[in-house]
Amino acid sequence: MDIAAHAAGELTFRAARDTDADELVALIESAYRGDASRAGWTTEADILQGQRTDAEGVLEVIRAADSRLLTVERDGRIVACCQLQHRGTAAYFGMFAVRPELQGAGLGKVILAAAERTVREEWGVREMHMTVISVRDELIAWYERRGYRRTGQLSPFPYGDERFGVPQRPDLEFELLVKDLAQDPV
Rank of each mutant, 00 (worst) to 15 (best):
P158A: 09
R63C: 08
G147K: 03
L177I: 08
L84K: 00
G152H: 11
V79E: 06
Y92L: 05
R52C: 09
E162H: 14
R169I: 10
A4L: 08
A115M: 06
A16F: 00
L69S: 07
L102Y: 06
T89F: 10
F174E: 09
E175Y: 09
A105G: 07
E73V: 04
G9F: 03
L107R: 01
V61W: 00
F13S: 00
G152V: 09
A113Y: 01
R136W: 03
A5V: 12
E122Q: 15
R120S: 07
R150S: 11
T42Q: 07
M130G: 11
G57P: 01
Q83E: 14
I140S: 06
S155M: 13
L176D: 02
P100R: 08
S155R: 15
S30A: 15
S134M: 01
D184T: 14
S67E: 09
T19D: 15
C82Q: 03
D66L: 04
R126S: 14
D54H: 06
G165R: 02
Y148E: 08
A113S: 13
I3G: 11
D66P: 02
R14I: 07
A39P: 00
I62D: 04
R33P: 03
D184L: 15
V125F: 06
T53A: 08
S67F: 09
A65L: 10
V98K: 00
E29P: 00
T42Y: 01
D180Q: 09
G124S: 12
T12V: 15
V110E: 03
S155G: 08
L172S: 07
I140G: 03
C82S: 09
W142C: 07
E173T: 12
A45K: 01
Q85H: 08
A8L: 13
E121R: 14
V166K: 12
G147M: 04
P185R: 15
S134N: 12
L181T: 03
I28M: 02
I78N: 00
D2P: 14
C81N: 04
G9A: 08
E162P: 05
A141W: 05
D75I: 00
L177K: 06
D75G: 12
L154Q: 12
G160H: 09
H129E: 11
P156A: 15
H6M: 10
R17K: 14
R146H: 15
R163Y: 05
T89M: 10
A97T: 01
P158T: 10
W142R: 06
E116L: 10
A4M: 06
D180G: 07
A36I: 03
A15K: 12
S155I: 11
R126G: 15
R99A: 14
V119Y: 01
G94Q: 06
G34S: 11
T42E: 01
T151P: 03
S67Q: 13
T151N: 05
E60D: 13
Q153T: 14
R68C: 12
V166L: 12
H86M: 07
A4D: 02
W41T: 04
F96D: 00
G88V: 08
I62C: 03
F93Q: 01
T19R: 12
E175I: 09
D20Q: 04
R117S: 13
V132T: 05
Q85G: 05
E122K: 12
M95I: 02
G57I: 02
T53E: 02
E101D: 15
E73K: 07
I133G: 07
L176N: 05
L27F: 05
E173K: 13
G152R: 10
G34K: 07
A91H: 05
R14W: 03
S30R: 12
V61I: 13
